[in-house]
Design a protein around this nucleic acid. Structure first.
Length: 270
DNA sequence: CATCGGACCTGTTAGC
DNA sequence: TGCTAACAGGTCCGAT
């Protein structure tokens, strides 16, 4: 589910409910997420006000004076701010209790999500090696071209590598490569600087546009307010195998690149 | 180092 | 209608 636009949509949805609220405690019903939820998370959060709700890559960070909780939604996770009375559903793994009698509830069927703690002054190893945000000024064609030097892996892999640039997952990689006219199978090291500039622009445009639409709803993604995202209606190639390209009407092709479905137009992308 | 495959999970869907 | 296999938005880790 969640790539950068969905995580950012979630951040914007929960931020007004969390900012300035004192965390009263953490109820963990299922600690076995991507990594087990440790006791340090509750200890770090409890008793202090939340000073910021940030996003870095696909991670959400809840800051207080002791440090930050690091939340990841994995493939199937979602967060909602609820009244305590609301009935528990399957896969509701933790609740962060707030001082206004509401709570932040995490649901995640596949349990690829995570909840970690980072002490003030520390940088968690998972965050330390991340590439630039797509909206950072340093993310451009020259940067991508330099990082791709001599790489033989498909450009789609390269674009989805969070050490290169963060936030681009399987859906938006397909969409950005389509907009840039680049075949997802092409070796990353064999894409020109000019085409990488188109790609960087396409990534920013698509992510920004999707955020404005509230993210993409495939299957079960819902925003924290329970509404779906609307970007799905604007996908040009993702999930459209066999259907006509919206630009040239050539049937959209599907290939598997490293265990993952990739969609592209054989006429528009080279 | 870069690259590949496996691993972690459950739910939904496609195919027989 | 039921059973099974394949596949799904992420990404770490170990082997090569």
């Amino acid at each position: 589910m969640p790539e950068l636009p969905e995580v950012e949509t979630t951040r914007r949805g929960i931020e007004p409910h969390l900012l300035g609220r004192v965390a009263r405690g953490l109820i963990v019903r299922e600690a076995r997420l991507r990594w087990p939820i440790g006791a340090e998370v509750a200890a770090g959060l409890t008793g202090l006000p939340i000073k910021a709700v940030r996003r870095r890559a696909k991670y959400l960070l809840l800051d207080n004076d002791r440090g930050a909780a690091i939340l990841h939604l994995g493939m199937s996770g979602s967060l909602r701010v609820l009244d305590q009375q609301v009935l528990l559903r399957k896969h509701d793994h933790y609740d962060l209790l707030l001082d206004d009698d509401r709570l932040l509830r995490f649901n995640d069927p596949r349990r690829f999500g995570s909840l970690l703690w980072q002490a003030a002054g520390d940088v968690h190893p998972l965050l330390a090696e991340l590439g630039p945000e797509p909206f950072d000024p340093g993310f451009d064609g020259a940067y991508l071209h330099a990082r791709a030097h001599a790489r033989s892996a498909p450009v789609k892999h390269f674009l989805m590598d969070q050490h290169i640039v963060v936030g681009v997952g399987n859906i938006y990689a397909a969409e950005a490569l389509f907009r840039a006219g680049i075949d997802p199978r092409r070796a990353a090291g064999r894409v020109s600087r000019a085409r990488y500039q188109r790609l960087a622009d396409a990534v920013r445009m698509i992510l920004g546009h999707s955020i404005a639409r509230g993210g993409t709803t495939l299957r079960d993604f819902l925003r924290p307010d329970g509404e779906p995202g609307y970007f799905e209606q604007e996908l040009l190639v993702y999930g459209r195998a066999g259907q006509p390209c919206r630009v040239c009407a050539t049937p959209v092709q599907s290939v598997r690149l490293g265990q993952r479905a990739s969609f592209y137009c054989p006429r528009c992308q080279h």
